[in-house]
């Protein structure tokens, strides 16, 4: 019954762990996942022989290589700020991982060649780079806005310059680019780019600002949300996101299954950010 587009549950193998600034790029041989990947989907990972820690950890897929000398590989970006990801990035080449993916609904792609603004915050900008490639293939004009607390946590400015017509960088400490946050500059960026669609991935305040700016300028927004996803496969209902459905009724849906990409105007950001 496993179909050619659905997720798969496979044993993977660490191919390399590269540190770039404060971020670790982990490349994994994961047959089946790379071939099915679409930008905005993610992968759930567990460490082998970890009987005490049962929840999965979800990572954006930063890129895939369906045919390489090691077989199909995918790349994730990890911030090693707590114990679990520190164990992950400490693994050596050849270490075994258990992966499920690609999971979730990907970014919706425009049928027409339109102008797109891609907004990414820190490591969460990971899915925007393969997205930019797909958009360019469709003849879209791509502008990027990358944000981070500091230069160390900034992802892929070099790669952004390859696939985007214009790239703007903001950091909270001003170590590179403009000092500020997504919320300070996004409205100006949307109007300057003349964006028809804004794609975004990052923290809730940033995504809220993106959704608001897009709505204000009459653009569509596609926001990739991040929240704690205990199973990541839709089984446990542990990742509720408050949204408004097409029927105008508010409900809690699963980030991992109905998301992680939502139309920005469908998410009830204020309710979600409330403690």
């Amino acid at each position: 019954m496993t179909d050619a587009r659905g997720p798969v549950h496979v044993d993977g193998e660490v191919l390399s762990v590269k540190r770039v600034g404060a971020l670790h790029h982990v490349t994994v041989v994961a047959p089946g996942i790379a071939e099915r990947f679409r930008p905005g989907t993610f992968v759930a990972v567990s460490l082998p022989d970890d009987d005490a820690r049962l929840a999965r950890r979800s990572f954006w897929i930063h890129g895939v290589r369906p045919t390489g000398s090691h077989g199909p590989t995918l790349e994730i970006v990890v911030t090693a700020k707590s114990a679990w990801p520190r164990r992950l990035v400490a693994l050596g080449q050849g270490a075994r991982l258990v992966l499920t993916g690609p999971l979730g609904r990907p970014f919706a792609l425009p049928r027409e060649p339109v102008t797109c603004l891609l907004v990414g915050e820190g490591y969460a900008a990971a899915p925007l780079f393969p997205l930019a490639e797909r958009l360019r293939e469709r003849g879209c004009v791509v502008a990027m806005l990358l944000a981070a607390p500091d230069e160390e946590h900034l992802l892929g400015t070099l790669a952004a310059r390859r696939s985007a017509r214009s790239v703007t960088v903001v950091t909270a400490d001003g170590s590179v680019g403009v000092r500020g946050a997504v919320a300070d500059v996004v409205a100006d960026q949307v109007s300057r780019a003349g964006a028809d669609v804004v794609y975004a991935a990052g923290g809730r305040p940033a995504l809220h600002a993106v959704a608001a700016a897009a709505e204000q300028h009459g653009a569509w927004s596609q926001t990739a949300v991040e929240t704690w996803q205990p199973c990541a496969t839709g089984l446990c209902h542990g990742c509720p996101v408050p949204v408004v459905g097409e029927d105008g009724v508010g409900r809690l849906v699963r980030a991992c299954t109905e998301g992680p990409v939502f139309r920005g105007d469908r998410v009830q950001w204020v309710a979600w950010e409330a403690p």
Partner: peptide, 17 residues
């Protein structure tokens, strides 16, 4: 509608659900 999160947390060798 269910509760807002968090709804499922890890506990050693288990889940608080």
């Amino acid at each position: 509608p269910g509760h807002p999160g968090p709804r499922v947390l890890e506990s050693p060798s288990g889940f608080v659900h």
